[in-house]
Design a protein around this nucleic acid. Sequence first.
DNA 1: GAGCACAAACTGTGATCACAGGCTAGAGCC
DNA 2: GGCTCTAGCCTGTGATCACAGTTTGTGCTC
Lengths: 232, 232
Amino acid sequence: MTDPVVALSAFSTIPDGGLDDSEPMNGRVYATLRAQLMSGAFEPGEVVSIRSLAEKLGTSTMPVREALHRLIGDRALETRANRTIAVPLISRAGFRAIAEVRVALEGLAAERAAKHLSEAEIDRLDALTQGMAEAARLNEPQRYLALNTDFHHSIYRAAQNPVLLDLIEKLWVQAGPQFNFLFHTVGVPMRTIAPHEAIIAALRAGDGAGARQSVQRDISESIPDIVETLPV
Amino acid sequence: MTDPVVALSAFSTIPDGGLDDSEPMNGRVYATLRAQLMSGAFEPGEVVSIRSLAEKLGTSTMPVREALHRLIGDRALETRANRTIAVPLISRAGFRAIAEVRVALEGLAAERAAKHLSEAEIDRLDALTQGMAEAARLNEPQRYLALNTDFHHSIYRAAQNPVLLDLIEKLWVQAGPQFNFLFHTVGVPMRTIAPHEAIIAALRAGDGAGARQSVQRDISESIPDIVETLPV
DNA sequence: GAGCACAAACTGTGATCACAGGCTAGAGCC
DNA sequence: GGCTCTAGCCTGTGATCACAGTTTGTGCTC
């Protein structure tokens, strides 16, 4: 099975997943923790302490506290009333709020991407989708998730709007911990690849409006499955 | 003239503009610097150093470096190749990229707000707009800006989607330094209030689609004026 | 007078310490 | 036996120091 952290490194803003030695430690810690959050390594509601993370990562507390504060700014972590830092518990309403914004942003990104994607890149999207079908058949949820992430992210990157890409990533990081943790514990069902094939068809036709609609439907249809598994 | 920082505090996520003594110092420094960036207190391209800011704010370097790293995460500041921290210079393409996302997000927010705004709140929006007309007539750009910020932000708050509000604020903070600095130096022309009156009319009619269109037109029409003043 | 080199003064970063507040577990008392 | 208070541990936060890298400015040399 594909290592989820490594697989998700393609999703990180920072090349090489933040493993560059010349980069400051705080940035590397940030990239590492972000990837771990996205891969469901932390349980929603879990308290993360600066000192314990520093010990686990083999550094002093300084880089960790800077990284944690950045993640708090990203709403990927939150400070509680006691001022302890924890992984947010996302409510059903909160998840729907995120989904509503995702529909707007990722729809826009898909529409713009339709004008920039080359035939070769669309072929790659097709390969990713076929890989998802295989992962679903073999019941490999981690691989399924990694491929799905790569699929969507590749499209949004093709929109060639760094601001848009940045905000979409922020939303994924916000929902990621809850989503991915549920995915590999409770077990969210892996859906069919039909929505992705609709997206690919629209992209191949250069149909921006169609790509937008297909992506928006893909997101909207996935909401109930996930909301259902949320406790609140 | 209204103090821009105080006027903008209504725009901050943190109540009281972060002046609460019980709140940690790093949060107060963050709120202060964010407000100062939004009011154009820093020149785009200007290098801001941790130690000098700490001395100016009367604290040690610790709260400042945490605040600066949060602002870097918000893309309100950037680290240069030398690893010094500076206020970003936004290119014309960069400004258009932000505007494109603003159109999507603020259009969505306006549409949702149309379903929630009360008559009294719309009356307040009307009063803000009349104030802008007066500020334009009396040539008070700072007051004009503060009222404009309050106007838009009030609408987006009414959308009752905290995730959406958060992202919109992030975009304003990104563009704010460049925009507001240009505004009170080069002097961006103050526009007529016609677009705002169209927004108010749509909101009063509960016309979500109309509110979306009006807000999107308001943003789109303001772009050329600003882009024109950008150096690159 | 122009160019080069060295030194001083910055820069951000990592580490460490002290401290106040909150939580918990255990001992002592009723 | 059950309740309460206290002592100890853990939390994040602020401050301070050392260090490596870069920039800047000055003085010396050619």
